[in-house]
């Protein structure tokens, strides 16, 4: 990587950092100042503006893992492996955030931390799949083999999502339905101000994804570069 492209990269990421920061500020202001408190649920409902964007982000990230895995197996370029890896890490972080913010909201509203509702169960299984993906990466030495194995798992894991969705959904229907507010119910009865806040928050989180992704990819590429330089040093001495 020559000097020029490094600087160019930096400049681009600076713009993204500022943009993400500003939009996040707006999102925070909207969540805590602008949007009115929900009548029945109270202030705890505001966690939804973090919860839903995190969920969206983790699904998006896992979809990117899937696409990059296919592209890797097709083109065999290290680039795609880096993207898949970075995206999986971000996806797991935000999936964890979903699993943490969910119970915080559920305790005062439903009265329990956790119910075996379809949506909750699928998110938990999804989290387990991608934690396994990251574990596989951690257990194998860096190289072509790790990239191939991870790519296979990235594809197999994502294709599992529809099966998980339906099996868990049908599994639940045999039990008494818990008092769950479905997303359709949420969307319908939502105030315009709430929708706007959710929109800003979604934008902020999506920008954050690209910011984190850019940083992580750059880091991984620098790691490759250091490895290459080390090897060069080793051979020359």
């Amino acid at each position: 990587m020559n000097q020029e492209t490094t600087e160019e990269l930096n400049e681009e990421s600076y713009i993204l950092v500022w943009l993400t920061g500003i939009v996040f500020l707006f999102a925070m202001a909207a969540i805590f100042l602008f949007v009115p408190t929900e009548q029945t649920e109270g202030p705890v409902q505001r966690i939804m503006y973090i919860h839903i964007p995190s969920a969206w982000l983790s699904f998006f990230a896992f979809f990117i893992v899937f696409t990059c895995s296919i592209l890797f197996l097709w083109k065999k370029e290290r680039e795609w492996d880096i993207y898949a890896h970075a995206s999986a890490e971000i996806g797991v972080i935000f999936c964890s955030l979903v699993l943490i913010t969910g119970p915080i909201w559920a305790k005062p509203i439903w009265g329990t931390w956790w119910v075996w509702d379809a949506r909750l169960t699928s998110t938990l299984i999804l989290w387990l799949i991608y934690v396994a993906y990251l574990m596989l990466r951690a257990q194998t030495e860096a190289g072509f083999m790790r990239a191939r194995y991870a790519a296979v798992l990235g594809i197999v894991g994502f294709l599992n999502i529809p099966f998980i969705h339906f099996s868990v959904l049908w599994w639940r229907t045999f039990h008494p339905q818990p008092k769950v507010i479905s997303s359709e119910g949420f969307g319908k009865g939502m105030e315009t101000s709430m929708l706007i806040t959710l929109g800003i928050s979604l934008c902020a989180f999506t920008l954050l994804y690209f910011l984190l992704m850019g940083q992580r990819v750059r880091q991984e590429k620098l790691k490759d570069e250091i490895d290459r330089l080390k090897r060069e040093q080793l051979y020359s001495s």
């Binding site: 387990l128 396994a132 574990m135 257990q139 194998t140 894991g157 599992n160 998980i164």
Partner: peptide, 18 residues
Amino acid sequence: LKTREIMLPILLYPLLIP
């Protein structure tokens, strides 16, 4: 993998849940 007996169930079980 080095840790094959450990990794197989960790990889396989979440995918087999359906």
